[in-house]
Amino acid sequence: MPQKIIGRGSRRKTRVKKVINLTLLTGVAIFFMFPIFWITVIAFKQPEDYFKFPPVWFPDKPTLRHFINVQTTGVGGYTAFKNSLIINTASTIISMVLGSLAAYAMTRFKTGGKHFSFWIISQRMLPPIAILFPIFLLMRTLRWIDTYRCMVLVYVAFSLPFVIWMLRSYFLEVPKEIEESALIDGCSNLKVLFKIVLPMSMPGVIATAVLTYIFTWTEFLFALMLSRTNVFTVPVALSTYFGSEAQFWGEVGVLSVLSMAPVFVMGLAVQKHFARGLTLGAVKE
């Protein structure tokens, strides 16, 4: 019995170790939380508070005025929000539909074989800067710059490798027997996909959709290059404050807080799937 071997001294030792563990973890947690705390508080600070030396940690007179200023100064923070919502929702839905069709065919019919799935994942690996300007020039020729369809198309392509690899890994976990009996009963393959495979892997499908949403929500390079005054997204709106040095910290804070809040809520809801999502299905929990 291993319990018997552990004497009183070693039990105290484990307790001390546990306390040290928790202290270290709390320290690291503070390190990870502090920047988020700082930017959140700045959103509510008066300009004289965030430009005070030495810095003020907790403002005496919090203000909500930056929540109004964020639309009236600069390019329009809430317009950016609307744009991000439209572009991300459309591209997430489209890439989920296209991705689940492809993933189903790839797992059930072995369409394309191994080479095809590696071709798809290689798309994710190449540095985006390599295709940024060719895409820009093509979109310019099509006169698609600064349109929703341009952004949605690019984001669908950007999300598809992720969606396909994630769904592939979830679809492979669905037991084959149920599908096979449905097929023998005369169900079409598409019906099997939408009535059996997708509902049975629903937690994974939802996690995939949420992570796709988060990844497109944070995308910056293509949004910067392909938008002008109509379809700029939240990161682009934020970056416009870069040149204007010190004046707009409060507005930057507000936009940051508004961009973090929904993503945090959605992300924490699917936290179990995170490790898998970050590695495109390679690491399972």
Binding site: I39, L255, S256, F264
Partner: peptide, 21 residues
């Protein structure tokens, strides 16, 4: 959940935040 938050942030936001820090 605490250690998960930074991964979900917009890199532009992270950049701005650290610039202020």
């Amino acid at each position: 959940p605490i250690f998960m938050l930074p991964v979900m942030m917009v890199p532009v936001v992270v950049g701005f935040t650290w610039r202020m820090l």
